[in-house]
């Protein structure tokens, strides 16, 4: 446990109380639900911990149109074991989360924590960006925005003064697949890819392709989405995808893999995810 200067631990009953407590610490407070990332945080200035696990944000609901509403404090295990979440988009959410680390971490880690921490190697941001997730949060006012838009801004600053309340996933009318490359079952990704597409009259009608751990956080590849749109899915297209990714992808080194390895591995990874997404879309 790295946090040394904590003087109080609060259990907030709702978001209003959490925000009030947070404001009282003037930047020296931290929200937690599972606490996994807070406990490992390098922050030295935290004096107050504000636990929002009991703030009523752990729902998992399907909407009438087939979207999914996920409370920010639902744990990854709760999602993996949720029959409701399993119904969403061919089970891609449950499938992805079951690949996340090991059960002891999934039992504590929350969806909101994964979204807010947004580690570069994390699987959750890559998948949620591909799915087109929308966030709801409150900083005293109820606010909403696309996950992509939030990540494009100063989101770490934003969530120092706001409570993430809900992740909304839109209705899924195509097929999605998620793949990751890692050394062992509990390892974090050396690369991860989430791809979704719709097929109409034998051609790709739309595509959403996100790649993460490159080594930066998962983000979409609009140029690749444009490339595959309107094309006939199949081995020839996947070869072209792999070649284009290798030629154009901007990658870097970290302690897990070199940028050169990532550039070579990313193409086949994306192609594999797209091929599976096609199977699921049909």
């Amino acid at each position: 446990m790295r946090l040394q200067g904590v003087v109080r631990y609060h259990r907030a009953r709702d978001t209003e109380e959490a925000l009030s407590l947070l404001a009282g610490y003037e930047g020296r407070g931290a929200l937690l639900a599972g606490g996994v990332d807070v406990a490992r945080s390098p922050r030295r200035d935290v004096e107050g911990l504000i636990d929002i696990a009991g703030a009523g944000l752990s729902h998992v609901k399907l909407t009438e149109r087939g979207g999914l509403l996920l409370g920010a404090t639902v744990t990854l295990t709760e999602l993996v074991e949720s029959r409701v979440a399993a119904q969403y988009c061919g089970g891609v959410l449950v499938e992805t989360l079951s690949l996340f680390s090991a059960a002891p971490l999934r039992n504590m880690a929350t969806l909101g924590g994964a979204v807010v921490s947004a580690h570069p190697w994390a699987d959750v941001p890559t998948l949620l960006v591909a799915l087109g997730a929308e966030l709801r949060w409150t900083d005293g006012m109820e606010r909403k925005g696309s996950l992509e838009g939030v990540y494009a801004g100063a989101f770490r600053e934003l969530f120092r003064n706001a409570v993430l309340t809900e992740v909304r996933l839109p209705p899924c009318d195509g097929g999605f697949a998620f793949y990751k490359l890692r050394r062992s079952a509990a390892d974090v990704a050396m690369l991860n890819a989430a791809c979704g597409l719709g097929v109409a009259q034998g051609r790709i009608a739309w595509a959403r392709i996100a790649l993460g751990a490159t080594p930066t956080r998962g983000r979409r590849l609009p140029w690749l989405e444009e490339l595959v749109q309107g094309e006939v899915p199949g081995a020839e297209l996947w070869e072209e995808v792999a070649a284009q990714v290798r030629a154009k992808l901007d990658t870097g080194d970290d302690r897990r893999a070199t940028g050169e390895w990532r550039r070579k591995a990313a193409g086949p990874l994306v192609a594999r995810a797209l091929a599976q997404a096609v199977e699921r879309a049909r």
Binding site: R2, L32, A39, N107
Partner: peptide
């Protein structure tokens, strides 16, 4: 490891395994 990576600190909290080194004691309330 004290950062939740090695599993030697595993306990069951309410019947589920967790890494006790990165679980706040207050969570056991």
């Amino acid at each position: 490891c004290d950062v939740g990576d090695c599993g030697s600190c595993t306990v069951l909290l309410n019947g589920r395994p967790v890494r006790s080194c990165i679980t706040f004691a207050a969570k056991a309330q």
